[in-house]
């Protein structure tokens, strides 16, 4: 099959459609404007639902409603808009509703700028909304990933009845690259006994997160925890390359991982023993693999487009067994190979 040249933002739309997304609700914000624009054209063509909401707050709640009826549904935004969605995300987790949420990150804080960034790692992985919850976070680093991860996100969301975030960034969203339009293989349909579709010949159902009865909320949270444990056990994903003999392992996700790989290739060509570990799921974080890679005599360099967020998780995983250094560019800056090589030269 020949590859198709496509923008990251468009690839994620096509991945969603391939995976059976029935509705998209969103609000314009750069650098993800191609998503609502493309969906506004494609969804009606296919007899599916597109609606431009009045705000990101409304959009995530439209997602909640559509999800409660058991259909695959998606919203997308960029950092400031994703902040507005946090309330709804917390409710989705509490109500155990599946949904796919895309954050094509831009620089912050505040309005920041429209350049790519990775500054929402904490928000995405540590729970940007209220309450004690976790959310699956996938970190695409190519246009291919934008397509494939979106399909995966829908499957994981349905499998665990929980929202899944695609944590992309302005660079991956805006770039074009050739991709294979891989065929979507439908996952097994799970339990549907929670779907609101009218109490016809059955007892009424309710979708809720309010649990006021004695002990009910704690029981609910313990059940959620069991689910999160299951996700950690089954769904942790990481890609490693050339780590066996590596003296330095670069740990990077998303767009930064691309730079890490090209840096590795350049330095390997010059005989330097460099490896890369790229977390594909940011939550669950690949704690175990990173911990196993932390061997005496080795050093880690964590590279991110922020002032040091994932590096905290890497340090927890390494647990003092090796030095962990950091190379980052905050909102407004992009990590690049020249600086990464310079940084490694200083290690």
């Amino acid at each position: 099959m020949k590859k198709t040249l496509m923008k990251g933002n468009i690839a994620l739309c096509e991945g969603a459609i391939a995976a059976g997304c029935k509705a998209y609700f969103g609000y314009p914000i750069t650098p993800q404007n191609e998503v609502p624009a493309h969906m506004s054209k494609r969804m009606p063509e296919l007899g599916l639902v597109f609606l431009q909401a009045e705000s990101e707050v409304a959009a995530i709640n439209m997602v909640l409603g559509a999800s409660a009826t058991g259909v695959r549904v998606m919203t997308s935004s960029s950092s400031p808009g994703v902040s507005l969605k946090q309330e709804g995300i917390s409710y989705l987790v509490g109500c155990e509703l599946p949904a796919v949420i895309v954050n094509v990150q831009r620089g912050g804080p505040g309005l920041g700028n429209i350049s790519g960034s990775q500054a929402d790692y904490f928000q995405a992985t540590k729970g940007g909304g209220h309450g004690d919850y976790r959310m699956i976070v996938l970190a695409p680093s190519s246009v291919q990933d934008m397509y494939d991860h979106t399909m995966l996100a829908f499957d994981l969301a349905d499998k665990y009845r929980t929202p899944v975030m695609l944590l992309a960034d302005g660079v991956v969203g805006q770039m074009m690259e050739p991709l294979m339009l891989n065929k979507y293989i439908p996952a097994a349909t799970g339990d549907r006994s929670w779907v609101l579709d009218g109490a016809r010949g059955r007892e009424p159902r309710s979708v809720k997160s309010l649990l006021m009865a004695e002990g009910a909320l704690e029981r609910h949270n313990l059940e959620l925890r069991k689910k999160f444990d299951l996700i950690e056990a089954n769904e942790t994903r990481i890609e490693t390359k050339n780590t066996d003999d590596a003296e330095i392992i670069i740990v990077a996700f998303g767009i930064s991982a691309r730079v890490a790989y090209s840096t590795m290739r350049a330095l390997r060509a010059a005989g330097k023993k460099i490896g890369v570990a790229r977390p594909v799921t940011l939550w669950p974080f690949p704690q175990k693999t990173i911990s196993e890679l932390a061997k005496p005599g080795r050093k880690f360099l964590v590279a991110e487009m922020n002032m040091g967020q994932m590096v905290e998780d890497v340090r927890l995983a390494v647990n003092g067994k090796c030095p962990v250094e950091f190379y980052g560019r905050p909102g407004g800056g992009l990590v690049n190979q020249e600086e990464m090589i310079e940084r490694i030269n200083k290690m």
């Binding site: 290739r265 992009l334 990590v335 690049n336 020249e338």
Partner: peptide, 10 residues
């Protein structure tokens, strides 16, 4: 001819 790092170059 091989995998590309960042699409943004200096």
């Amino acid at each position: 001819d091989e995998e590309i790092g960042s699409p943004v170059v200096n």
